[in-house]
């Protein structure tokens, strides 16, 4: 219970500071929409083929935009030594990590939920048929992406080449979650349900989330406190 309260405090602090400036959110949203527009030049947006690529296009845009949010997650604590103050506060490292991850998760979900209708309009695609399942896929995959991203954001926060190192490290590590999310999103947009053989991707997403959340919580103290 105490952990949950601490997680909410840290997440609330991050979200409040983000909503005051909307620095990352605006940048991530605009970037994701620009990517979605750029895709229309790479493939014929009116073709039937686009439906089979929908998951891939959407999740590439989310992954690129997500990196902007994740990059700032710990970097915003650097001015005025706020990170040192956070680490010195009576909040456990696991709560600090989970709070930051939860805030990033919510921000990424906002980007996704805004981009999805925009994608539907731009590419003339209906995505409402399976929306509860689609939401579940978005929730699970976004958590996987943010857990890895938040952990690696903490690892690279003090680097000069932070903006370059973070995407280089996180994208290969995120591939299981992205792969599953792309596959399931395509299936849910292009067809009327998830075929039995595709449930392996849901299991992969759940497994990915459990394994990396446990690993991140176990290693949070080492990463944040040294």
């Amino acid at each position: 219970m105490k952990l949950l309260r601490e997680v909410c405090v840290v997440a609330g602090k991050d979200l409040r500071s983000e909503f005051r400036t909307k620095e990352c959110l605006n940048a991530a949203l605009s970037f994701a929409i620009v990517i979605l527009v750029l895709f229309s030049f790479a493939v014929d947006p009116s073709s039937e083929q686009i439906r089979e690529m929908s998951g891939g296009l959407l999740w590439l845009a989310f992954a690129f935009a997500g990196a902007l949010i994740l990059n700032q997650s710990f970097a915003r604590e650097l001015p005025n030594d706020c990170l040192d103050a956070l680490v010195a506060s009576p909040v456990s490292a696991a709560a600090l990590f989970l709070g930051k991850a939860a805030a990033n998760w919510l921000l990424l979900m906002i980007v996704e939920l805004v981009c999805l209708p925009v994608f539907g309009v731009l590419y003339n695609m209906s995505w409402l048929g399976q929306w509860p399942l689609l939401l579940l896929v978005f929730l699970l995959a976004s958590w996987g992406v943010t857990v890895i991203g938040t952990m690696f954001s903490a690892l690279t926060v003090n680097l000069r080449l932070r903006e370059l190192m973070l995407p280089t490290l996180i994208y290969p590590m995120m591939i299981p979650a992205l792969m599953a999310a792309m596959q399931l999103t395509t299936v849910l947009i292009a067809t009327s349900g998830v075929p039995p053989e595709d449930w392996i991707w849901v299991r992969l997403l759940v497994g990915f989330d459990i394994i990396f959340t446990s690993l991140a919580i176990a290693l949070a103290e080492v990463v944040l406190l040294g």
Binding site: M151, L155, P172, M173, I211, F212, L215, V222, V223, G226
Partner: peptide, 14 residues
């Protein structure tokens, strides 16, 4: 050493 060790443990999943 510390940060590389953490990454190395994560990397083994692949």
């Amino acid at each position: 050493a510390k940060n590389a060790a953490v990454l190395c443990i994560f990397a083994f999943t692949s």
